[in-house]
Design a protein around this nucleic acid. Structure first.
Length: 273
DNA sequence: AAATGAACCTGTTTGC
DNA sequence: TGCAAACAGGTTCATT
């Protein structure tokens, strides 16, 4: 569900609600997430103030005055928002962190692929969850020339490279498909057979689609909600994702669906080579 | 070494 | 109508 634009949307919504607030004692209804939720970890931020809300790849980072950071991942169906404490609990609401203003942070996750951890800020960059991440898509250090040279001779399908968070962080299935369509590159094309100018174009289109999606508040297919509990509006602007059989808006041919590495890929055989 | 498939979960949609 | 299979935005581990 949530890829970079959705997590960034949540980050922007949470930041003004959380910065300056104190975190009180966490309540855990279900600890069996992707990793076990630890009450002991949350004790380390009890009474601490949130000083910043950041994002790295698809992770949210709540930095606190205790020098500890709450690391949040939404998996496929995770939601995190702020609610008044007297609101009834949402379905699959697993963790609540009360705030000092009568409200509380709520985390719900139907499929439980998400996680919440508390990590010392000084150890964040070396932490196993973050250590292997590649550059952010908007990092100016990410270059077409590097992608080209790193791909020479490789036969890996380009879509699989986009989904590899060790190469570029934060891209998921929707925006990988959309960026490839916009760049006119076939998702199965071997990375070693893409020239530098096409890498330039792909990087450009990737950044453009992410920017537009963030501006629209992300894509809601079924579960995604922002920090205010509302949906994102980028879905209607998707050109290929989840549009199998629809006519391509550019050439009119039918959008195809194939499976790559066990995941659906949507593309236009007329526009993508 | 690199790529695919399975696994982790629950809910919804699709097809017979 | 009912049931089973397929599928879902992510990540990691095991297996070719």
């Amino acid at each position: 569900m949530p890829e970079l634009p959705e997590v960034e949307t949540v980050r922007r919504g949470l930041a003004p609600l959380l910065i300056g607030r104190r975190l009180l004692r966490a309540q855990v209804a279900e600890r069996r997430l992707r990793e076990q939720v630890s009450l002991a970890e949350f004790r380390r931020v009890e009474g601490a103030t949130v000083v910043d809300v950041r994002r790295r790849s698809k992770y949210l980072l709540l930095d606190t005055s205790a020098g500890q950071t709450v690391l949040v991942h939404l998996g496929m169906t995770g939601q995190i928002w702020v609610a008044d404490h007297d609101r009834p609990p949402a379905p699959h609401q697993h963790v609540v962190i009360p705030l000092d203003d009568g409200r509380e942070i709520r985390f719900a996750d139907t499929r439980r692929f998400g996680l919440l951890r508390v990590v010392a800020e000084a150890r964040l960059s070396g932490h196993p969850l973050l250590r292997g991440l590649g550059p952010e898509p908007f990092d100016p250090a990410l270059s077409a020339a590097d992608l080209r040279s790193g791909s020479r001779g490789r036969r890996r399908p380009v879509k699989s490279l986009l989904l590899d968070t060790g190469t570029i962080a934060g891209i998921g299935n929707i925006y990988a498909c959309e960026a490839l369509f916009r760049a006119g590159i076939h998702p199965a094309r071997a990375v070693g057979r893409i020239r530098t100018d096409r890498w330039e174009r792909l990087l450009e289109e990737l950044r453009a689609v992410l920017t537009e999606a963030i501006r629209a508040g992300g894509t809601t297919l079924r579960d995604f909600l922002n920090a205010e509990g509302g949906p994102g509006y980028f879905r209607i602007r998707l050109r290929v994702y989840d549009r199998e059989g629809d006519p391509c808006g550019r050439c009119g041919r039918s959008i195809r669906r194939i499976v790559q590495a066990g995941r659906s890929t949507f593309y236009c055989a007329g526009c993508q080579r």
